[in-house]
Design a protein around this nucleic acid. Structure first.
Lengths: 218, 218
DNA sequence: TAGATTGTTAATCGATTAACAATC
DNA sequence: TAGATTGTTAATCGATTAACAATC
């Protein structure tokens, strides 16, 4: 159905388009041109049109794009018209934060179970889902269809946990552990490396300080 | 001191180099060539050398790079030799998760205060830092040097909170709210958009499904 | 000295932007 | 029909990779 080899740069921009279109929709905006949208989003109109045309022509010459239609279409491209069953491995603050984030459900991501090794967390319920002991992971995954596992365990435990998940047949891991998981190529991994994100901020802070200190140098 | 206009792509790779070098250091590896490192990290040796040489020559012909030295130098480039005072706005699960993440401190990021609007959270202590009511934010920021504010409030409250932070003189915001903050150009914003990260995963999952269904098409 | 590997220039590749014909 | 704006091709720009002389 879809054309070939969409670049990662394009894919990463899609959720942002989706977000802006969602907001326009909420504000009852019916149509928008690539130019208007580009001004709001601070990107070029050319890039928007180029990006969208990777997936087909969603607009109309002389008119622009119908907001609702484009919103729905990008949703489909992102796979948001489907339902995903998610389990969370690691019920620390971060795991609990993910479980509590109700907006994921709105996008089709349903937290079906949360696992931890800490017996003191057993049975605690987060939005109706009880924290289970990790011993029950295998049974649970084998008797349920799980599409995505969010991995929020400590760094040192992450590689073994990931391997276990893969052994159980999980094909997509949302990894929050500050390490790279070395998994078979058919397993999707999406990393969220918070420490790395923070370091780009300190880099830029330092840059500003340096510039101020340098004064008149060119 | 530093040359000009390092691309964002390069900057984003630095923390990952830093992480790998840190692990090598822990394993008492003394030296490494760009080729060896490239194999571990699954990037090209050329890219590593090119990236590093944006900041100066850290290696030695015929030898490679001294792991400890390079680790320290990248740390300096990232500004990790400095200390940053951080406040967290929003003491929900995510805010608490950040406050609990002890590794940030190891990198020089110190959580000095946590604020929330919820009176039931007042006084709860996270790693020695008590959650304060948001009313005390102004006083606190005015009487302390704060380098970074982590913003973990709900989407709708984020823009106003960010504006307030900027008014108080904060120059760097680590934004976890699923929205773009429109702030003056001298304020640094680093976004962590978890929902967008998750959507790239559903995109790729969908892609695989499509490919399987298509079967013999080329 | 010979071998290894950097630092750096040149070549390639890919992504972004500009331009414009097609068309609503 | 005239005006607007897309879809798409062409031009530009920037990032990655390859190559190799410099040098440890």
């Amino acid at each position: 159905m879809q054309e070939k080899d969409i670049s990662i740069a394009v894919i990463k921009r899609l959720p942002r388009y989706y977000r802006y279109l969602g907001e326009l929709l909420e504000n009852d905006v019916v149509r928008i041109s690539s130019k208007e949208l580009s001004e709001k989003m601070k990107v070029t109109a050319s890039q928007i049109r180029q990006d969208l045309n990777n997936f087909g022509g969603f607009g109309q010459q002389g008119y622009g794009y119908n907001v609702e239609y484009l919103y729905e279409e990008i949703g489909k491209i992102l796979g948001l018209d489907k339902q995903y069953n998610v389990i969370i491995i690691g019920a620390g603050n971060l795991g609990q934060a993910l479980a509590n984030y109700i907006d994921f459900e709105r996008r089709g991501f349903f937290v079906k179970a949360i696992f931890d090794v800490n017996p003191r967390l057993e049975g605690i319920s987060i939005r109706g889902v009880e924290i289970q002991m990790i011993e029950y992971l295998e049974e649970f995954v084998k008797s349920n269809t799980i599409h995505i596992a969010a991995l929020t365990v400590p760094k040192l435990k992450a590689p073994a946990a990931a391997k276990e998940l893969v052994n159980l047949g999980i094909k997509a891991i949302w990894n929050f552990a500050p390490t790279d998981l070395n998994l078979p190529p058919d397993v999707l991994v999406e990393n969220v490396h918070l420490a790395e994100s923070l370091m780009t901020l300190s880099y830029r802070l330092k840059e500003i300080d340096d510039a101020e200190l340098e004064g008149t140098e060119e």
